[in-house]
Amino acid sequence: MKVTLKYFGVIAESAGKSEEVLELEQGLSLRELKDQQIKTYQIQDAGSVQIAVNQNLNNEVELKEGDEVAFLPPFAGG
Rank of each mutant, 00 (worst) to 15 (best):
A15L: 08
E60H: 14
G47I: 10
L5T: 05
L63M: 01
I11M: 07
V61L: 14
E20I: 06
Q36H: 07
Q42N: 15
S29N: 05
E62D: 13
E20P: 07
K64P: 04
K34N: 11
D67Q: 00
L22T: 02
V53S: 08
E20F: 04
G78H: 07
G78V: 10
D67I: 00
F8N: 03
G77F: 13
Q42W: 06
Q26F: 07
T4M: 09
Q55T: 04
E68V: 15
Y41P: 12
F71Y: 13
G66A: 04
M1R: 06
K64V: 14
I11W: 02
L72G: 05
S48K: 14
L72F: 11
Q55E: 13
E32Y: 00
V3Y: 02
N56I: 08
F75N: 03
V53W: 13
F75P: 01
E19M: 12
D45L: 14
G66D: 08
R31G: 12
V49G: 06
E68W: 01
G66M: 07
L24W: 04
L28C: 07
L30R: 09
P74R: 05
A15W: 04
I51C: 03
L24F: 02
A52Q: 08
E19A: 12
Q42I: 09
V49L: 11
M1N: 02
D35R: 11
K17P: 02
F71V: 07
L22S: 01
E13G: 00
K34Q: 12
Q44M: 05
L72R: 06
P73L: 06
F75Y: 12
E68I: 15
A15K: 08
D45E: 15
K39C: 01
A76Q: 13
I38P: 09
E25F: 01
K2V: 08
E32I: 00
F8T: 04
A12K: 11
S48G: 08
S48P: 00
Q55K: 11
K64H: 12
L63P: 02
D35P: 00
E13Y: 00
A76R: 12
E19V: 12
K64M: 12
S14P: 04
Q55D: 13
